[in-house]
Amino acid sequence: MSTEFTLKAESRDRVGKGSSRVLRRKGQIPAIIYGEKQSPVAIAIPLKEAFRQILAGSFRTRVIVVDINGEKIQVLPKDYQLDPVRDTVLHIDFLRVSEKSLVTVEVPVHFLNEESCVGLKQGGVLNIVRHEVELIAPATSIPEAITVDIQKFEIGDSIHISAAQLPANIELVIQDRDFTLATIAAPVEEEEAPATEAAAEPEAKKAEVKKDA
Rank of each mutant, 00 (worst) to 15 (best):
A182K: 07
E171H: 13
D13L: 09
D149I: 05
I64C: 07
Q81V: 05
D176E: 15
F153M: 06
D13V: 10
A168Q: 14
V125K: 00
H160Q: 11
K48Q: 13
P143G: 02
P143F: 07
I159W: 02
S158K: 15
S98P: 05
I68P: 08
V107N: 06
V105T: 12
T196C: 14
Q28T: 03
G18F: 05
L166I: 10
T61Q: 10
P202L: 10
E201N: 04
E115P: 11
F51N: 12
R14M: 11
F94I: 04
P143I: 05
V66L: 03
L166S: 04
E132V: 15
Q53Y: 01
V97Y: 04
E99P: 03
V103K: 10
V133D: 06
K26W: 04
H91T: 05
H131F: 09
I150Q: 06
S19N: 05
A168P: 10
Q38Y: 06
H131N: 15
L82I: 11
P84L: 08
A9V: 04
Q81Y: 05
N127T: 15
F59W: 03
V15P: 08
P202T: 08
S2A: 14
E197S: 02
H91D: 12
I174F: 09
E144T: 02
L102Y: 03
L95S: 02
E49M: 11
Q175P: 15
A9L: 05
D83W: 02
E208D: 01
L82R: 10
V148A: 08
F179S: 03
V41K: 03
F59S: 05
E115F: 09
I29E: 07
K206D: 13
P194K: 09
V66H: 00
S20G: 09
S101N: 08
A42Y: 08
L126P: 00
D176F: 15
V109Q: 06
S162W: 06
K205V: 09
V15F: 07
S2G: 00
D87L: 10
L126R: 03
V103Q: 02
G119R: 02
E191Y: 01
K205R: 12
R130T: 06
F179M: 07
V133Q: 08
P40K: 03
E4L: 12
G70S: 03
P77W: 05
I32F: 02
I174A: 00
L55Q: 09
A50L: 12
L172Y: 06
D149Y: 11
E189W: 04
L102F: 00
S2K: 13
F94R: 10
V133M: 04
T104M: 15
D87V: 12
I146K: 00
T183W: 04
I33F: 10
I159D: 04
A44I: 02
A44E: 11
E203M: 15
K37A: 13
S101Q: 02
A56Y: 01
P30K: 11
E192L: 13
L82Y: 00
R177P: 01
Q81R: 08
E192F: 06
E10R: 12
D13C: 01
A137Y: 13
